[in-house]
Design a protein around this nucleic acid. Sequence first.
DNA 1: CTCCCGATAT
DNA 2: ATATCAGGAG
Length: 227
Amino acid sequence: MGTPLETREAQVEEVLERLYEEYPDSTISLNYSNRLELLIAVILSAQCTDERVNAVCAELFETYGTPEEYANAPQEELAEAINSITYYNNKATYIRSACADIAEKHDGEVPDTMSDLTDLAGVGRKTANVVLQHGHDVVEGIVVDTHVQRLTRRLGITEAERPEAIEEDLLGIVPEDDWQQFTHLMIDHGRAVCTARNPDCGECVLADVCPSAKPDAAVDLASGEEW
DNA sequence: CTCCCGATAT
DNA sequence: ATATCAGGAG
């Protein structure tokens, strides 16, 4: 049913323990083999499934390699190469611009600071945190994507709405050693069980500590409840 | 706030 | 037919 625990810290501790058990190998699901590929894959992943990003990147990474090659690619050509991805025109523009900056201002290397990363086109705080964590082993924040936003709000861990405000809340609640893994667990659980449209509360290992859990597994799809 | 914007699930 | 997918820019 969902009686929240005494404190949010205690609830998060319980959530982490159960999800580590459920998803012991939870990690990033984008395919890449260097920092530039990571950056590009994450830019492409905005509002798009990782599965489709991986499908496009398999060919993309064979065609282009260096920052200069992306920067000098014709807009039309790069857009065409990624046209099965959401917002492909914007993303082609972002990638060319970001890669031009990497080549000219960063000696061809993907930056390793939050401010240098977010100065790149198409790179906001979420993308920068992913590149810092997985490209540079720098964990100075918590990645808040659509899954983390949805699950933390359903669980009552935060009432904040903006991703930056949610991250600020989480930084004060989630143990620092778990900052990176917390996101992967939320994403895996969000994809498999706590889905955006029809969360499978009947099969959720967090149902008893979740204030949003539906009473029983026989879900009434007709109820116009807000999630 | 709006715009971007294809593939997939429901 | 519509909501959603590892968001970000103007």
